[in-house]
């Protein structure tokens, strides 16, 4: 699983996927995740980073992240590795 590197993320949470032409809006935590993924951070590091930066427990975060990743996948922002 890796992120589509061409994704554009604006300061205001506007996300554009040049592959599909779709645009999205995301919130602060969503932006943070997308940027870190683009920077090559892996899931474990990402969880650690987010629990340090935001006021959230690891269990809830993991649950929310799983859901978020599913959505990224369905929007083709995350790609399965074999397809790359």
């Amino acid at each position: 699983m890796h992120i589509n590197k061409n994704i554009a993320i604006s300061e205001t949470g506007f996300v554009f996927n040049p592959l599909t032409g779709d645009s999205f809006s995301t919130n602060q935590v969503g932006q943070e995740i997308l940027r870190k993924l683009q920077g090559g951070t892996n899931q474990e590091e990402l969880l650690k980073h987010l629990t340090e930066k935001f006021n959230i427990d690891k269990t809830t975060l993991e649950k929310d992240m799983t859901d978020f990743m599913l959505m990224l996948n369905s929007y083709q922002i995350l790609m399965d590795d074999e397809k790359a």
Binding site: V15, D22, S23, F24, S25, T26, N27, Q28, V29, G30, E32, I33, E52, K53, F54, N55, I56, L61, D64, M65, D67, F68, M71, L72, Y75, I77
Partner: peptide, 15 residues
């Protein structure tokens, strides 16, 4: 101090 948390969401915009 940590930032307040909001569940990450991404919503498709329909133009």
């Amino acid at each position: 101090t940590k930032l307040s948390y909001e569940r990450p969401v991404i919503t498709k915009l329909n133009t």
